[in-house]
Design a protein around this nucleic acid. Structure first.
Lengths: 187, 187
DNA sequence: GACAAAACGGAGCAGGTGTTCCAGATGCGG
DNA sequence: CCGCATCTGGAACACCTGCTCCGTTTTGTC
């Protein structure tokens, strides 16, 4: 096995990752590999050399961001204020959706590319249950609200599609706050 | 120009429309024309003879359903109970999404196939504004709620995608009720 | 500079889409 | 039952996708 990595290979690999990050953020996970190659000023074969399959490329691009999400989730778990922990999680989710069309898709499991993040998804799911449980215990959640409601809300945000990207941002933020209002106990 | 319509042509046209209706309802507006032809037990050329373009087929299939939606909207406008009018509209929207993946896509304008229904969409939009205005006047809406919030909620429902079709139905219904809870005035 | 290993670019393959072409089947008026 | 306009089925075209092959270029070493 080769031990060295040629400098041009390394440079190209980074260019591909960088271009793919931008492409997936703007256009979602459906952006063609050719388009990523074009943005990187690189041939398709170069992309495939570094990432044997399209899914590998997506995984590579999203892994660090997913790690950040997991970290934020862990931080929410130790927040002493149950409502702030849950609402913050939802609002962060909405903000992420505005910045990066691909990330939540992978996180929530609506996209098969998220299979590589099975562990993180399970972690996320478990954390959400804990957050809802705590919020209920603190009495800040409307009666009858279940984890499935929160999950449905997050899924709605993640699969939200609107026509112009700017208008979309406004609607997503409104949607997030509307969901929060629906979750909170009337008092 | 020909005046007569051959009986087989008419029969096939109806079979195509019927098959397309089912296909779009189950799989959304992205179902390939070939698949519709297969379901109709008909060649692709037959589909294209009756509907010169894919968009024409979609329009033909959805037009009657869109008309029904418009009728329901007009009925909501004369409902004496403002909250029932608005909440009913939203819940109907959610139910439609469970039954027919394609319909709301066209109605809300998230899909280009809805361009043919520009008039109905405008009508729908205007009616929504009226409904929200009346609900506000009656004091049944939470302060700060705007038409954009309702629109965001409907768009979320329309673009909602979950993996298994059964699980999806549960989540959509929950989402609808959650949104309603977020809209209603706390009292 | 020479040279081999490593990496590259782009043509090309397999499979999918929307749409068109045309030889042949089909319904209908005589 | 005949003739023919109409209609049909499936092959074919153009274009898109993920992915691979291979002749050519680049890099690091001596």
């Amino acid at each position: 096995m080769s031990r060295i990595e040629r400098s041009d290979a390394r440079a190209n690999r980074e260019r591909v990752v960088s271009a793919a990050r931008g492409a997936f953020a703007e256009g979602g996970l459906e952006v063609p590999v050719r388009e990523v190659a074009r943005r990187s000023c690189v041939g398709v074969a170069t992309v495939y050399r570094h990432f044997p399959t399209r899914a590998d490329l997506i995984t590579a691009v999203l892994s660090e961001r997913v790690a950040v999400c997991s970290a934020e989730m862990r931080q929410a778990l130790v927040d002493p204020d149950p409502w702030r922990a849950l609402s913050g999680t939802i609002l962060r989710f909405a903000d992420r959706q505005m910045q990066d069309r691909g990330l939540n898709e992978a996180l929530l499991g609506s996209h098969e590319a998220g299979l590589a993040f099975r562990r993180e998804r399970n972690e996320h799911s478990a954390a959400l249950e804990t957050l809802v449980g705590r919020a209920h215990a603190a009495g800040v959640l409307r009666e009858g609200v279940a984890v499935e409601d929160v999950r449905a809300g997050l899924l709605a945000i993640a699969s939200f599609r609107a026509l112009p990207p700017e208008r979309s941002a406004v609607l997503i933020r409104r949607l997030g706050k509307l969901l929060l209002a629906g979750l909170r106990a009337p008092n």
